[in-house]
Amino acid sequence: MKKTNIQYKKRFWAGLLLAQFLLFYAFSKSEIMISFFETLFEFQKTVHQIVFSWIPFSFGDVIYILLGIFLVYCIITSFKKKNRNSSFLKILMSINIFYFSYQIFWGMLYFQTPIIKKLPSQKEPTVEKAKVLALKYLARCKETRKLTYEDKNGIFILKDLKAVQAEILSQQTKLPGNISGKKASEINSFKPSLFKNVMNFTGILGYYNPFTAEAQYNSQLPNTLIPFTSAHESSHQLGFAREQEANFVGYLIGIHSENTDLRYSTEYFTLKSLLNFIADKDPEFVKSVLKNYSPEMKKDRAYEKAFVLKHQGLLDDFFGFTNNLFLKSNQQEGTVTYSYFIDLLMNYEKE
């Protein structure tokens, strides 16, 4: 009797999961429902930030750790025949709860109106314009880099991370109205990830936790990457789910900032993105730009390259592959291409 009851529950939770897939798929096609989830997000992010922002460590990471321990326990106990059905039932229930929570808190935001449709121009990016912008941002990087601090080896260092975070929150309130009508909570909920040692080997710079509204970043990254990564993750906190749109909003947050650390990190990211876009079409141009980096920028680039080379490995390949699948499952480009960010940048930048 007990075994029959568990079998019934397993079928129920499996059926419920399938029903959720179908329901949220239907919701993704409805503008009314997407608008509802956008409104819900504004409410829940504010509540979550008030509840979790004061905690000095990433509470979201603690949740992930506990969930991981629970799932490992269920998997181990499932090897015992007498526990197999109950363990599998617990896993099914957990997947249902996790999937439902994820979709209502975050997943549906991937189906918002794309930013590109909000811009007055929607032209295809051209290599020639990319070259013009690359030279523009090269010049800007050179000038801004002179205003920043560096260590004894001449490598860029952050003067004040808290000041950068405060500036990001301030700049969120100044985003163009035609691009973002989202509410900036101005609550500092940036957290260094507890998984930083693992992240070094994955290629993941930061991530947004939709269950706690925390913006996680890898505190062991080269300092050139941390300000823009923080701006990017703060864009997720605003409600921009697509990765390249978060890059673009992060760009808008940082590019006009009076905080030189944030501005340099943003300009440098933009320059690198443009060069990546140009590289396949005109590698000689990219080489010439790299040669024209200032001595300070060359040191920053060398340090970034050394960091990446030091941490390359199977984890990097694995997470790159899985992240690629995740992006594509949410109607985004994979990790290899940044062309949508370039689309947004070029259509935003005036001729």
Score class of each variant (00 low, 15 high):
residue 122 Q to M: 13
residue 9 K to P: 00
residue 150 E to K: 15
residue 343 D to A: 01
residue 228 F to N: 07
residue 23 L to E: 00
residue 103 Q to G: 01
residue 178 N to M: 15
residue 266 T to F: 02
residue 23 L to Y: 03
residue 282 D to F: 12
residue 313 G to V: 07
residue 87 S to F: 04
residue 255 I to H: 11
residue 100 F to W: 06
residue 328 K to V: 13
residue 225 L to Y: 06
residue 22 L to P: 01
residue 133 L to M: 07
residue 158 L to Q: 09
residue 223 N to W: 08
residue 340 Y to H: 13
residue 338 Y to S: 12
residue 344 L to E: 06
residue 348 Y to F: 12
residue 210 P to N: 10
residue 129 K to H: 10
residue 180 S to F: 04
residue 281 K to G: 01
residue 97 I to L: 01
residue 265 S to Y: 03
residue 215 A to C: 15
residue 40 L to E: 11
residue 201 F to P: 00
residue 321 F to P: 00
residue 207 Y to E: 01
residue 121 S to I: 14
residue 288 S to N: 14
residue 44 Q to V: 15
residue 156 F to Y: 15
residue 36 F to T: 02
residue 120 P to S: 07
residue 346 M to T: 03
residue 165 Q to P: 01
residue 51 V to G: 01
residue 105 F to T: 11
residue 67 L to K: 02
residue 121 S to M: 09
residue 24 F to A: 02
residue 350 K to Q: 15
residue 54 W to R: 13
residue 133 L to D: 07
residue 271 L to K: 06
residue 210 P to M: 11
residue 9 K to A: 15
residue 267 E to V: 02
residue 247 N to S: 12
residue 227 P to F: 02
residue 80 K to P: 02
residue 278 I to V: 11
residue 97 I to T: 04
residue 349 E to M: 13
residue 329 S to H: 07
residue 247 N to Y: 09
residue 279 A to L: 14
residue 331 Q to R: 15
residue 282 D to V: 10
residue 301 R to L: 13
residue 231 A to M: 08
residue 48 H to L: 15
residue 68 G to W: 08
residue 134 A to C: 05
residue 321 F to M: 12
residue 261 D to N: 10
residue 18 L to S: 04
residue 245 E to R: 07
residue 121 S to K: 15
residue 34 I to S: 07
